[in-house]
Design a protein around this nucleic acid. Structure first.
Lengths: 211, 211
DNA sequence: TTCCGCCTCTCTCTATCGGGAGAGGTTCGC
DNA sequence: GCGAACCTCTCCCGATAGAGAGAGGCGGAA
């Protein structure tokens, strides 16, 4: 504990891969101005730990068991609108970036980023400064120009992505085949796709659907 | 250098995420019986480093720039059939597992595995003992019962997954639409799918296609 | 050589898909 | 109260997809 040290940045890590947590923890704890105060392997414990430890920053993976990163962002911002969250993930789809940032995450960074960039991001977010690399920011802006799908359309899209026919989709959603077609047509228009299969490809690339 | 130490297990890490390499390196170097002798961020340097350093084990990620994990497995086994490779990845699709193991990887482990399991796997593979968790092994066995797609079918499947029509696929592959249909039909049969969109979903789950 | 798997092509036929154009009902916010 | 967006339903119609049944050529393996 040196004299010039004021207070370390207190960090919580939330990622379901022990290896990634170890890597981040090692990086962070090596810095004189920051320390890891807790680690979570799933979304629920991330939320609990955030409330208990009130860290300066929480680093969040998007894909996690129990509750995914986006859900954690929503819940935590609800509990504490001043929370400083840095999303760190491998997914660079428009939708993920857009959703996280518009729900209040202060930063979004990709896992293949170099060590220095990750540390810079943590520092920035801890001071309540937004951090987003130019490529990520560009995607968020792109996304803003695109039409959003409605909830129902997302329901339909999911079934389309599973390879269901319009008739099948209609049965599962308790609507007529005609209505299912209407939704699919609207999805095709919004995603600028010619066929349902292309729509699935586009939706996948944008991060509108998982798996 | 203590007296009871004979020789440490020399490990190379190949993963495009600096964070993951750090995490693994920290774990490995903390063990008295192993050490990291090199790290690679892409497939090409993984191969080069393997030849130069001749490690006891190389831990390989599947998704890497320049050359993916499977390609590295193939090339390294070609250079040195006695190579001991441990594939470590987030993908648990039949196809990835099957391909890696049948091309000679000694182990396959998922990134969300606990620390101890990862270390056990590295030790096992370093001694030329195969390591595969029961769930992973089960998938490899499942895959063996399934028909393989031919090269041409994989070409077609990729285009189908992009949302191309039969006509479009035919044009791109310089075949007639009828032939494209024949391939698609055969793909549907082999993947046990009713529609092309379902085929894409199945192929994706199995790891037959990326993105 | 003979067989077999793969790739190619052809034909027919039906179901499904996707474009186009409405229209009635709801629940919002203004 | 009045749009506006959303969900629902309805028609028509041409294009595409998928099932079924062959068949020829070409390569490698037995």
């Amino acid at each position: 504990m040196s004299a010039e040290m004021h207070k370390k940045i207190r960090v919580i890590l939330a990622d379901d891969h022990p290896v990634v947590r170890d890597g981040l923890a090692a990086m962070v704890n090596q810095q004189p101005d920051m320390e890891v105060v807790a680690e979570a392997g799933d979304g629920d414990t991330a939320i609990t730990l955030f409330e208990e430890r009130k860290p300066d920053v929480m680093v969040l993976d998007l894909r996690m068991p129990k509750r995914d990163g986006l859900a954690v962002v929503q819940r935590v911002m609800e509990i504490n609108p001043k929370a400083r969250l840095l999303v760190m993930t491998t997914y660079d789809g428009d939708e993920d970036i857009f959703q996280c940032l518009s729900h209040g995450a202060k930063g979004y960074i990709l896992k293949d980023a170099p060590r220095q960039e990750i540390l810079s991001a943590i520092r920035a977010v801890s001071e309540d400064r937004p951090y987003t690399s130019s490529t990520v920011a560009a995607k968020a802006l792109q996304r803003m120009a695109k039409p959003s799908l409605t909830e129902r359309e997302l329901d339909v899209l999911e079934l389309v992505a599973q390879g269901r026919s319009n008739k099948d989709i209609a049965r599962r959603l308790s609507i007529t085949e005609g209505t299912a077609k209407t939704h699919v047509k609207s999805i095709l228009t919004k995603l600028d796709a010619i066929s349902r299969t292309e729509a699935v490809a586009v939706a996948h690339k944008r991060g509108l659907i998982r798996l």
